[in-house]
């Protein structure tokens, strides 16, 4: 099944037929050297944009958005908590896409992107849990409740922990990438459970109020700061992801150079 398709691709290349444009773009980006050049130019802009937007968002959160009539100023925790939760899930989706890229297309950048995404996603998930817990103490009267969404988010953090542990356990990067890809795909079952837990089980955590059928139920004076913060967090996450990918590529180059140098010295000694 796989072999004939490979053969067809090779034959098409040898016949000099140009591949489709989108495919060509992906192929050019797949070249790590070209990727390093492009991402090196892009990264400062992305970082600056996320810093500016984060500053603007925090200004909105602290000075412009109103205090809630029931929750008071505690509601401002929500502007950190909700974007962190979104991004905790978003980075898992990035890892799933990269895992498919690793297993199906053997894309050289996919496993690097997968590795760089794991600690960022885990950090956002942890931020979500910690801020939620700080909000829960004054509002629900407890730091922790075994509620469906809290529990599924905690399981998410445990899965991130397992993925990070497996990355560290396997030394050879390509083998580690394939092993982690399988684990990531198996763990993807949890993503819809987290997303819909508040709709399926009617427990303490409030149901979705932004992305729902029939439009958001939260007032514009709070929705706009929330969306600005969400955009700022997304840019921040992407900037961190991009710089993580760059670091990992450089680390692999150093690793390869070290191995080559060791082999050279070995050959010299022999």
């Amino acid at each position: 099944m796989r072999l004939p398709r490979c053969l067809a691709a090779i034959l098409a290349l040898r016949a000099g037929r140009p591949p489709a444009t989108s495919k060509r773009m992906i192929r050019e980006l797949a070249n790590p050297t070209r990727f390093m050049g492009l991402s090196g130019r892009l990264l400062p802009w992305l970082a600056a944009a996320s810093a500016l937007l984060l500053a603007f968002g925090l200004y909105l959160v602290w000075f412009v958005s109103p205090a809630d009539y029931q929750q008071g100023d505690t509601v401002r925790i929500m502007y950190i908590h909700v974007p962190a939760a979104w991004l905790g899930l978003f980075f898992y989706v990035i890892m799933v896409a990269s895992a498919l890229g690793t297993l199906v297309w053997r894309h050289p950048l996919a496993d690097v992107s997968q590795k760089a995404a794991a600690p960022i996603g885990a950090a956002f998930t942890l931020i979500c849990l910690v801020t939620g817990s700080l909000w829960g103490k004054p509002m629900w009267g407890t730091y922790w409740q075994w509620d469906a969404r809290l529990t599924s988010m905690l399981v998410m953090l445990l899965i991130y922990g397992g993925i990070l542990a497996l990355w560290r356990a396997v030394e050879e990067p390509n083998r580690a990438a394939r092993a982690v890809s399988i684990l990531t795909l198996v763990g993807a079952v949890n993503v819809p459970i987290v997303k819909f837990s508040v709709d399926w089980w009617n427990t303490l955590h409030q149901p979705a109020s932004v992305f729902r059928l029939g439009g958001p139920t939260i007032h514009a004076s709070m929705l706009i700061p929330l969306l600005v913060m969400a955009l700022a967090f997304t840019l921040l996450g992407l900037a961190l992801h991009l710089s993580g990918i760059r670091t990992e590529i450089l680390r692999r180059r150093v690793r390869t150079l070290t191995i080559l140098e060791a082999e050279r010295l070995d050959a010299q000694a022999a």
């Binding site: 399981v155 445990l158 899965i159 922990g161 397992g162 542990a165 497996l166 356990a169 396997v170 092993a179 399988i182 684990l183 198996v186 763990g187 949890n190």
Partner: peptide, 26 residues
Amino acid sequence: AVGAALTASLRRGGLILSIIVLPFMI
């Protein structure tokens, strides 16, 4: 079994296996 297969060739697979597999058993 998924965890066992992923850690089959690791020297200290037992601990990693538990960390990987336990969340899925919940």
